[in-house]
Write a protein that binds this DNA or RNA. Structure first.
Lengths: 347, 347
DNA sequence: GTGAAAGCGCTAACAA
DNA sequence: TTGTTAGCGCTTTCAC
């Protein structure tokens, strides 16, 4: 029953060395059963001495839990995909906060690659998963519910009928706030430059924009860029819109790179932001603070999204009641690209 | 022996339903033993039908491996640490490539938080770990070798005596190339603005700089900023150096934010880069491409570092021979902040 | 307060 | 080709 030397010691060896049963060792180390203080002391000392550490695999087999969660981010972990990753700071923030929150709650975090195949999804030793910005056809979304493993999403899947608890910003409301900011600054006609509606936050923005335009009685101007989106494509879209009979004089882009593309291309056309047109982004990013002019953007608090999703997931895993949906606050950060007129001094 | 309904089916239920033994099921599914084609077919069908998926915990207990690796990044996964994280794009790139490579090799990747405590380090169910830019006193570096779990580092630990296989850039060589670039551009006296020597790459840069200065017969000018470093601190350091009797006319910063700090502060002093002084960074970052002037930097290929570290680790885990150290190529990207004189047109 | 023994679900050596 | 069975290392029920 006892191991020989040289391998990592198991609980039997500790029990043997301490002259007690494995039950006692288990209880002494976990603090769960009743053990005489003196005995516990001795067991702890011996365990320390022989460098005992419980085999995590055995513990997991018996408990059925791994205290491990997975997090999956669109486009992440796919060879050669770096350039398709949207704003780096956003995801790093989200990931960092998720990782910190998981650690706080006593869970490990697995970075699931986005092209995970079904077999690997099945062999994932996890208690739950967060899927960031799902489209809806992710393998995890299909496989995990079958195994009884809870999933929480950040924003909502747009295709498929499964419903998961989610945490999200109010991107529609934020878009409207941005449009109203445009109007306050004297712009008359904002357009939207978007990625595919596959991401729910994009759909939210477009829907809010169409509704807002309807209320004002103006024709909505939306460009949905084909995948993968690029700065250049955003620039071309802006150029096309500006060639219209009734061109827009402001652009709301669904993420930072697109806003950047618009800025570059319009500048190339000899237009000046904020004077000739306004530019804002639905997702903030470091570059937006550094370009000239700096670009107005929504701070959607990626850290709150990441930490919130993990918290909710842990609550579900541990059987606590949670609300199925959580809205995380966000804030419009007004910068140079939309600051003009009498308010030019600052907001 | 058989489960009742409602739980995830186990191998016994599949065996029962297929009218075979668990061995046969195991063999049929893993493709390891000898099974009659007809039998295998039937087992596979039944397994599919009842939605069987092997319990990963049990497989890991028996195999002793988890096909899971951990990766730890300085400052990552610690609550409220976001602002201390160096250049986002660098780490996201590294992480993305590491994740992709791990997936390719059939391993999962755990994001270990930087403040992991010893107990949790012991209960990590991993076959190996990558520690990015270790100082040397990381818990993983102490705990894992005791458990016989291999560790690979990205750059080398500076404190402690343990040696791990590593992958790294030649930061010293790159620094010298940058200094020579400065000289070619007509700058006479580069200074170094550095973070703490605790990171080996910083030490490499400083050592290379001191040696290079010695060879030229000039006095080295190095500022090691206290932790945590900041743009402001870098700016103040630059100001101090410029007040010397023999001030520097170029700055090599150990990462992007510091270079940015120098740029901002010197501009505030009325100095112009590249005209009055040169600025370069040892680590590239998105903002460096966007500021005016854009800042010269070393592209240290974070993706190659991440993927290389994972590859090496997997080779070690699986018992293949590896070289203990790998140097990853890097490249100086010359931008506006150092482009002057007759070469002003480009490099 | 302590210990014997029955699993957790799987793999693989060995037998048939 | 297929089945029996002994572990992997731990937790936990139930006697003592």
């Amino acid at each position: 029953v006892y191991n020989s030397v040289c391998m990592a010691p198991n609980i039997y060896e500790v029990a043997h060395a301490a002259g007690v049963s494995v039950t006692t060792v288990s209880h002494a180390l976990s603090g769960r059963g009743r053990v005489a203080p003196a005995t516990r002391e001795r067991v702890l000392r011996i365990a320390e001495q022989v460098g005992y550490a419980a085999n995590p695999h055995a513990q997991r087999l018996v408990s059925g839990r791994s205290r491990t969660l997975a997090i999956q981010i669109a486009g992440f972990g796919v060879a050669g995909s770096t350039e398709f990753l949207p704003d780096a700071a956003f995801f790093l923030d989200l990931l960092n906060a998720a990782s910190a929150r998981a650690a706080e709650r006593g869970y490990e975090l697995i970075l699931a690659s986005y092209d995970l195949d079904p077999r690997r999804a099945q062999s994932l030793a996890i208690d739950g998963a967060v899927v960031v910005d799902p489209s809806g056809d992710e393998v995890l979304l299909r496989e995990l519910p079958d195994r009884g493993i809870p999933v929480v999403t950040t924003s909502r899947p747009t295709i498929g009928s499964m419903r998961f608890p989610w945490v999200d910003n109010d991107q529609g409301g934020m878009a409207v706030r941005a449009f109203e900011h445009f109007v306050r600054m004297g712009y008359r006609r904002p357009a939207v430059i978007a990625t595919a509606r596959r991401r729910s936050y994009v759909a939210d923005i477009i829907d809010a924009y169409v509704e807002w335009s309807r209320r004002r009685g103006t024709e909505p101007l939306v460009v949905e860029l084909p995948e993968p989106p690029s700065e250049a494509a955003a620039g071309r879209a802006a150029r096309r819109l500006l060639a219209l009979a009734e061109p827009p004089d402001a652009f709301y882009a669904t993420y930072d790179r697109l806003a950047l593309g618009v800025l570059r291309e319009t500048r190339r056309m000899g237009l000046d932001a904020p004077r000739d047109l306004g530019i804002a982004s639905a997702v903030d990013g470091e570059v937006l603070r550094w370009v000239e002019p700096s670009i107005t953007a929504a701070d959607i608090k990626p850290g709150l999204l990441g930490a919130g999703a993990i918290s909710n997931l842990v609550d579900i895993v541990e059987g606590r009641p949670v609300s199925a949906s959580v809205i995380v606050p966000s804030r419009l950060v007004v910068r140079g690209s939309t600051r003009r007129g009498r308010d030019a001094g600052g907001v």
